[in-house]
């Protein structure tokens, strides 16, 4: 497999820095530490070994203990000053700080969050220097209204590998009861979801944590784990098969729709409007989307969808004129 150059170089420099600190390590340990096969570590050491400054004399080269390596032990004899240059770049520090900030925002409402938050704040402070307040480059603030008790119960189930029963409100405002095997909790753009194996559907399902009303750990052990599935990253997990495709012609004020909802097609028009095509898996969800965004919508195809939404809206309005 072709590996991108920068990653390998960082590992090469990392190997030198690590060996400089610990004086020696086995090939196996290095492979585990840097998460690559032993053969790769061997190739890395071989490459480092022939590297040196111009001149190419023995004293100019990076050097390892040749006897130790026969026993699978890597001992650095001469690092040629490279370990002393090892540092985190500003951008790497920013990326780490962003992860810390995200974790802080994500765990804020959890029980026992205080202990974690304090550790995060220490690390953030230590990452910053006089020139750039690293901690402040990426800033997270999410609105999340998950009940901490739901989190706690879920974490227990995940820890004990047991099934749970949930009372759930779906996107169409229906109350469901499901027995599921929790696989993992995901944060997507500030919302928390539970990816799970649903015993009712006999398929993967993703549940929004803030829509779980009640949760109960069952005695039954799980039969599926997260490693059984190739779950995609991000919000690409589309569950259920599409029932219909709908086209919405939208004003520019409705850009938020293609920005937040996956679409299959988008066309810009000359009059500053545009059309998106969505694949619909749930008609209740679609009706809701239309009512929530009525001011952005110019037209809907097929027209029956618009009529159904209008009927709903009329029924709702009647209650205000009582």
């Amino acid at each position: 497999m072709a590996e991108s150059n920068p990653e390998r170089l960082v590992r090469l420099l990392g190997l030198l820095a690590y060996l400089d600190r610990v004086s020696e390590a086995s090939l196996d340990e290095l492979a585990a530490r840097f998460d690559v096969p032993v053969e790769q570590i061997r190739a890395d050491i071989d490459l480092l070994w022939v590297s040196g400054r111009p001149g190419g004399q023995h004293q100019d080269l990076i050097d390892f203990d040749a006897f130790a390596i026969d026993d699978g032990i890597v001992r650095l004899e001469q690092g040629q000053g490279l370990p002393q240059t090892f540092r985190l770049t500003d951008r790497e520090s920013i990326a780490l700080a962003a992860c810390l900030q995200a974790l802080r925002a994500a765990s804020e409402r959890d029980p026992h969050a205080e202990a974690v938050t304090a550790l995060i704040d220490d690390a953030l402070e230590h990452l910053s220097d006089d020139e750039l307040n690293i901690a402040d480059v990426v800033d997270f603030a999410w609105q999340d209204s998950v009940n901490p008790a739901v989190i706690e119960t879920l974490q227990q189930a995940l820890r004990e590998h047991r099934r749970v029963r949930i009372d759930y409100i779906d996107a169409g405002d229906r109350q469901l009861q499901r027995v599921i095997e929790p696989l993992q909790v995901r944060h997507l753009e500030g919302r928390r979801y539970l990816d799970s194996w649903c015993l009712t559907a006999q398929d993967l399902r993703r549940f929004r944590l803030d829509r779980i009303q009640r949760i109960q750990v069952l005695a039954d052990p799980v039969t599926h784990t997260v490693s059984d599935f190739d779950l995609p990253d991000g919000n690409a997990l589309v569950l259920g098969s599409p029932m219909a495709s709908v086209r919405l012609r939208l004003r520019n004020s409705g850009r938020v729709i293609p920005e937040t909802i996956p679409y299959t097609w988008l066309e810009e028009h000359d009059d500053d409007s545009f059309t998106v095509e969505l694949q619909i898996t749930n008609l209740d969800w679609l009706r809701r989307l239309i009512l929530e965004n009525a001011d952005h919508i110019i037209a809907i195809t097929p027209p029956e969808v618009a009529e159904a939404a209008a009927t709903q809206a009329t029924a709702a309005l009647t209650q205000y004129s009582l």
């Binding site: 991108s4 990653e7 960082v10 840097f34 790497e92 920013i94």
Partner: peptide, 16 residues
């Protein structure tokens, strides 16, 4: 996480 900075940062943390 966006970008590859986090990948190299993580390799560096391992080295540390």
């Amino acid at each position: 996480a966006p970008g590859r900075d986090i990948t190299t940062a993580l390799i560096k943390l391992r080295a540390l």
